[in-house]
Amino acid sequence: MIDFDAEAFERLVIDELDRLPDDMVDGLDNIVFVVEDRPEDGSLDLLGLYDGLALTERDRYGMGELPDRIIVYREPHLAQCETEDELRDEIHTTLVHEIAHFYGIDDERLHELGWA
């Protein structure tokens, strides 16, 4: 297990977001990225969560809507990683996975693509 305080972990998440391809992030609309310590149930199994309505399910979506959220959980990531490089890789994978949900790609397809 590696140790990163909340501020250092958030900097890693921002850094990994900046490294994502432009064509992946340019289409993100009305979405915020949030870092939390753990999921509400306190488990260490869930690394991230997309909380919103996928683009493929949006009918009339526009002004006044609360932003969708992608949540990255710090403690589960730290529990699964032993080095900063592993942590960066896992954060990257989590971001890609959750962004894919925004675009309407489900877990089954992500598994086929190697992102689950």
Rank of each mutant, 00 (worst) to 15 (best):
T93L: 15
V13T: 00
G62P: 06
A6R: 10
R109E: 14
V34D: 11
E75G: 08
L44P: 10
A6G: 13
G104T: 08
E84I: 14
D51C: 06
R88Q: 07
L46E: 09
L95V: 05
L49R: 11
Y61F: 14
V35I: 07
L55N: 12
G104K: 03
D18L: 15
A6I: 08
R58Q: 12
Y73W: 05
L55G: 13
L53P: 03
T93G: 15
P39Q: 02
S43E: 09
F9E: 07
H111P: 08
Y73G: 06
E57C: 10
L95N: 02
F9I: 04
A100N: 06
G27H: 06
V32G: 11
L49N: 10
N30D: 04
R60M: 10
T56V: 11
D18M: 15
Q80T: 13
L17N: 02
E86F: 12
D18A: 15
G27M: 07
H101P: 00
R69E: 15
D68A: 04
D106M: 05
D37G: 07
L20R: 03
E82W: 15
T56K: 03
R60F: 10
L87N: 01
D18P: 09
I71D: 05
E40G: 11
N30K: 03
E65T: 11
G27D: 13
R88F: 05
V72Q: 00
C81F: 08
D106W: 04
W115L: 09
E108A: 12
R11T: 10
V96G: 07
G64M: 08
M1V: 12
A79M: 04
D51N: 09
N30S: 03
L95Y: 01
T83K: 11
D89E: 14
D107T: 13
R19M: 12
D51R: 07
L44Q: 01
T93P: 12
R88L: 03
V34F: 07
L44W: 00
M63P: 15
Y73L: 06
F102H: 08
D15I: 09
L47N: 02
I71E: 07
M24I: 14
E7L: 12
L53H: 05
E90W: 09
D37Y: 00
V13R: 01
Y103F: 09
I14H: 10
T94M: 05
D85S: 15
F9A: 00
